[in-house]
Structures are given as structure tokens and as C-alpha cells.
Nucleic acid binder design. Sequence first.
DNA 1: CGTGATTACGTACGTTGTACGTGCCAGGTT
DNA 2: AACCTGGCACGTACAACGTACGTAATCACG
Lengths: 248, 248
Amino acid sequence: MSRTSDDQPIWARPEPGGRRPRLTREQIARTALEIADREGFDAVSMRHVAATLNTGAMTLYNYVRTKDELVALMHDELMAQVLVPGELPDSWRGALTLIAHRTHDVMARHPWALNSLQEAQFGPNAMRHFEQTLAALARTGIDTPAKFSVLTLVDDYVRGAVLRASEIRKRKSTADADPAAVQAAIEFGMAQLRTGEFPHTAALLGGDLSSFPEDAPSPAMAEDGLREQFERGLRAVLDGAAAEFGLT
Amino acid sequence: MSRTSDDQPIWARPEPGGRRPRLTREQIARTALEIADREGFDAVSMRHVAATLNTGAMTLYNYVRTKDELVALMHDELMAQVLVPGELPDSWRGALTLIAHRTHDVMARHPWALNSLQEAQFGPNAMRHFEQTLAALARTGIDTPAKFSVLTLVDDYVRGAVLRASEIRKRKSTADADPAAVQAAIEFGMAQLRTGEFPHTAALLGGDLSSFPEDAPSPAMAEDGLREQFERGLRAVLDGAAAEFGLT
DNA sequence: CGTGATTACGTACGTTGTACGTGCCAGGTT
DNA sequence: AACCTGGCACGTACAACGTACGTAATCACG
């Protein structure tokens, strides 16, 4: 019952480097990321990644034990992008805001990430990110569980906001691909509104029913409106956290 | 260029009911939900659902045009469960809290939902839910865009919290399935901690390294701790929203 | 008792992850 | 120089997926 290399996470196992490997784990991860960004996460198949690298599909399994490990590599690469490079701001608020913004930006750049990477294994960069958020709260007087609660609260909001934003973007792009279906969906929505069952929704849309939530929900949802709304929400969440957990 | 039934959303198309259908859309959706709850969302394949209903896979396509439509039916069924049945509490805070709790509970009962249903089409019950959250803010004096921002903010937090909770549960169950890998992952994490690169994380875990975030991250993460943390976070978010948007 | 529409469903195609086995070829050892 | 050895590449094969297509079964109605 000794520790075999089979059980070890990918970061504890050495890369093929011995003989004459044609590839690198980093190279593979980068190609996978490019494919995901260009064609969506579903396009990241072993065959596709391999073909892009001019290689057979099974060759990749020399560098990675399963596809999940490839996904883990992608995840850790993204977490590296989230890391704040230099020193953190002194104030907990500034530090948390900075980290939240970086998280938001990375997830916005890779909209497939939140949905597809959440069962990925924790890697070193994820640990560094966790450490960094803890560091942001280091100088506050609150005790350890409270620290944990605060960063959880903020992270929950950030990820919820990103989730919604990427849903909206996703809807918008699938909508562009099939205008007829969108038109039909809008007509269905309008018919529902006309039943009188939805007075508040009707009031919100204010007669301009072509901006029904199905496709591009109201001006508040335009691309730059999204970021502004995120910042305002983040401010509110930080205020709430400060009050609830006694941060100064 | 007339409106053909091909473009219409599933809720605008009549069910097969004419001749002598063996199945119902609702029946199909319910079976799919049961399978998802019992074996996970990935187990919801057309073949599997059909087999459970003692039917050929292709038969389902008489009731549903694509698998996405099946998923849309599942989504709408869940939204029905989220709806508050009776009257909403008078205070916006009470109403929003109630809705948030129902959302949280439904998503916690069906942990696969958040990840798998987010590209699903908007159905009638989703509209009702949206209407209900607007109604919760009806009696406040704030203007329409502010209402929208508030409910977005709260919903973002709720979904972020649920997302994290189901990630934790998912990790816990995959961990149970492969204790050796967990052990190896913990050892890797401990080795990382010993590098001294993670002082705050080490302090958080306080020497009890067997509760490394990989599997069951600290007592704060136990099943009832999760709910308590959610409620506290929700309180903070509502406070923050009230302050930021001038709710009384 | 046909007849025509409706519902059921088998077959088949192109994908997916990956187990398995074979073959190549660079190093170190004789 | 010849030979082995083991790391690496990768073709084949399998089961499972969504679903297009075609056909068979079955009912309502004339």
C-alpha cells in the first residue's frame, strides 16, 4: 500500500521530460485554452487539441492521465492570471476590490471557465490565489472564521455576477445565430405579458417589448452597463460585509 | 416568411395530444429530473430517459424537438418549485429573503441545476419568478432601473453561494469515491504549505492539515454551517443593497 | 372496412474519452 | 559497432452520445 504515482495529482508527477518529448504540458494547456477561447469549451476534445499540435490524440496521454487533468491544467493557468502580481494595497477594501476585479476580468475574458472548470482539481496557483485573498484581510482585526466568511461572501458575489454576465453573453450569441427563433420567443413573451399576469415586468419593459429579457434585456444590460453594475454591486457587498463582520 | 411552428419555443407548440400519445411532456420532464437527481445530470441522455419510460429513444422526439428543449422543460419545472405559493411578505426585505431562500433550497436539492440549466430557454415559470421578485420591490420608492439592480445583486449572490456549495458537495462525493487520490492530494497540499509560501493559509488551517480545503474544508464547511453562512451573507448583501440603493 | 394521418422506433452517422497494443528510436551497456 | 531497453508516438477499437432519416404500427374517421 505504498504511494504509487497513480494517485498523485498531476502537479506532483514529473513531466515526460526524460527521453525526447515533443510536447510540454504548458504547451498543451495553452493550446487547449486557445481552442476554448476561439471555439468554446466543448470544442476542447483530445482529438482537436492533438490535431492542433500535429499529433495523434493518444499522444497527449503521455503528458496527462485523463482529460480532467488537462482541464485542471487549464484551470491553474487561469488562476495564474487572477493572481495580483505586485504588492497588495494596504487597505483590506482596496485589496479585495483589486482581487475581485481581476477575477471578474479573467472570467469575462474566458466565459466558458466558470461553467467548465469548477470540478477541476486545485492547483498551486489556486492555492496562491487563496493565500492572497487571506492576505488581503490580514491586517484587519477580525478572527479567522470571520476572514473566511468575508472572502467567501465576496467571492460568491463576484462569481454570481460573472455567471450572469456570461449567461447573457451566451444568450446573445446563440440569439444572433438564429434570429427567427428569437423573434418567435419575443412574440411568445409578449403574448404572455398581454395576459396581464405580469404587470411589473410589463412596467419594467415600459412598452418597449423588443428588449424582452430573452435576448438583450434592457439598456441596463449593454456591455459597459454590465461592468458598471458589477462595480456598484461589489461596493454594496463590501459595505454589507464591513457592517456585518465589523471591518473598519 | 410566415411563422412556422419550427421556430416557436416549446411552450408555444401544442403537445402531441391529438391521436393517442403514450407520454406527456410533463411525464418526460419528471423522469429526466428523477434521473438527474439520482445519477447526475450527465446521466440524462435521451436513451436513458426513454428506457426508463419503456420506450425507444427516438420516440421522445415526438414530444420535444431537441434535447435542449427537454432541458428547458426541466428548468421550468424547477422554476415552478422556486415560486412562492401564497402572498409575499409586505416588507421588501422579507419578500426578497423568502425568495432567496426558496431559490437556495431548490438549487441545493438539485445541485446539477445551476451548472446544467443555465443555457436553457426562459419558460413561463421563469417569467413568473422574475415577476415575483419585481413584486417584492414594488412598494419601495426606488425607480425601475434601481429595482432591477437590486434584484440582480441579490440573485447574483444567491447563485454564487449555491454554486460554491454545490462545488463543495461535488468535491466531497468524488473524494469519497477515491480516498487514495484524496490522501495524495492532501499530502501535496501539505508539502506546498511546508514551503512557507502560504503563511495565512497555514494559519487558517491551524495545524489540522487533514481538513485541507481539498476535501472537507474546515468546520465552517459542514452541511449546516453552509446554510448558516448563506443566511449571514444574505443579510450582509441586503444591508449593502439597502444602503447603496436607498431602500428603507 | 379501408384509408390517411399520427405516433413509435430501429438503423446509422459522426463525435466523444480512453484502454490496449504495437512500433519506433535514442541512450547506455557490452 | 552491435545490441538491448524503455520512453514515447499513435492507430485501432469500443461504448455512449445526439439525432437525421426511413419505415412500421396503430388509431380515428369516412
